[in-house]
Each structure stands twice: as structure tokens, then as C-alpha cells.
Amino acid sequence: MISYILRRMLQLVFVLWAGATLLFFLLFTLPNSPGELIAGGANRSANPVVVKNVNHKLGFDRPIYVQYGKFMARTVRGDLGESYRTHEKVNDILKERAPLSLRIAFWAIVIEILVGVSSGVLSARRRNSFADTATTLVAVVASAIPVFVLAYLMKQVTGVYAYQHNWPGWMRFPALGFGPNEWYLWIIPSWEQLRYLAQPVIVLASVSTAILARITRTSMLESLRLDHVRTARAKGLSEKKVIRRHVLRNAMIPVVTIIGIDFGTAAGAAILTEFSFNLPGVGSKIVTAASQRDLPIVLGLSIFVMAVYGVASLLVDISYAFLDPRIRLGGEDG
């Protein structure tokens, strides 16, 4: 197991390298003149001589392999470079934004697991009942409403209407921003923080929760039909134990897979949610930087997102071995 994890970590390093390289070359095939961005700006035309000088000084007129070598050399040392436009260090941007993204993603995934899995289980157990139909309906609606529409509606109700009509304090939520940034044990929000956190997290979790509920339901129904479930009933176990011990665990593999992917997405690509609530997260910064052709930021933050995906999928793979002993990790002893 340990050697498997170490091997997977090495693999992750390779994946990060390959991903960064691919992105580097892809981005540099774009029409791109850092000198113009640095010397002038997107809309102002800078003096061509100045642009040329800047490009020369910073090495942007050198062959692409030389630039790649420099990029790799500093990236390996943990330096993600600096913004062309603002000269902000990408490391600092990451330090500022990554915790927020990770925290929001974590809580969104908690909601996804709690609500998604339990409503999926309920649907499967009471198949074709009112509860099943209702969850299905809610799931379809939730996954169909665009995130920014849901965010707008929530803000209107709890952030605007609630204040206008003097709703009790606990029903009012601030509509924008990220509040006091108060956390216990890095991840648990303070009460005031929770009021800022709740809405973005719910919005971010909405679609994936709905999808996870559907997947859990299907997986449970499949698992319920297995022969060993009949054996479990024939042993005289209560229905609750049959479901908990013999159905749910076997149904978890596809569910865990989805959760892993969702965590990566929630941490790195929660763009709509971040824009809707004006949150300084990683995903929205990548989008902004990309539209400004601020390549170091795009590259640096993308490497972070890739790393999050990588770690999440490693955790998922390790969990497989616990969920199903027939899955041998990394082919240890065959």
C-alpha cells in the first residue's frame, strides 16, 4: 500500500510536468506579446521600440525552448513566476486564493455527499414512491438551473428581499464577498464566516449534488439486485443492516469516483459561483488572466488545479481498495 502511494505520487509529479509542458506550448502558440502587455496595456498601443526592448530584456524574443527551460527551471524551484501586467507573484496570488477555493470546495463536497448520497439511497429504497419522484424532480431541476441564475435568485431572496423586509437575522445572508475570513482548524468557519460561506457553497454544490443523487440511486438499485443481498436478508439481518452493510458499500465505487472528480472541479473551476458572489477564488482568476493573456498566472494556477485533481484521484483510488478488496492496488503481488 505504501509503495503504491509513493508510486502514485511520482506519477502525479510526472502528470504535473506533462500538463504544465502541454499548457506552456499551447499558450505560446497564441498570438502573444508580453512586451506589449507590460509596456502598454490591452487597449493602449505602446511604442514599438519600447515593446521590443521589453521583450528583449525579459527574454521573450528568445527561442521557445530557451523560454521553456527557464519556465521549467523556476517552476521546479516552486516559483510560479509573476504577472505580466501587475508584477504580482503568482505564488502570492495562489497563497491568497487557494485556501478559499479549497475551503469552499470542501464544504460543497460535504453537502454533496450528505445530501446527494442520502437522497440517492432514499430514492433507491423507496423506488417509485413519492419521495423517489420528488427527489428525481428536484435533481433534474437543480441540475438544469444555470448556476448564476440560482445564485442570483438566492441573493435576491436572502440578501436583498430579506434585508428590505426585516426578516430575522439568521435568514439574512450577505450577498457578496467573503467576510471576515475566520476559521477554526483552518477549515471550520466561524458563525459570521458561515453566513458568507453558506450561499456560495450551496450554489456550488447544487448541480453535483443532483447528479450524485442520480448516480447513487442507479448504483444502489444495481447493487440491490445482487445475489449476496438476498443472502444477507436470508441471514435474518434487518433491512437497515442489509442496506448499510451489504448494499451501500458495494454501491459506493462509482459514487466515490464522481466525488473525486467533483472535488477537483469545485476547487479549480468554480468560476460561475466565484463570479456570482464576487469571491476571490482560483477559477475566476484563471479566466480573468486568460482573457488578459497574462500567461504566468494561467500557467501557475492551472498547475495548482491539476495538483488538486491529482491528489483527489489518488485518494479515490486508495479508497477503492478499502471498498472492494478484489481491487489490488498497483498490481502488488500480481
Partner: peptide, 14 residues
């Protein structure tokens, strides 16, 4: 008590 036909699928693999 019951004993089933295919013991591979009748026992829980996990």
C-alpha cells in the same frame, strides 16, 4: 437457513 446456488455471487465480495 438458506443455502444458495452460486456461492461466489451469494457471498458478499467485500
Amino acid at each position: 437457513a438458506m443455502i444458495f446456488q452460486d456461492p461466489l455471487s451469494a457471498l458478499n465480495p467485500v
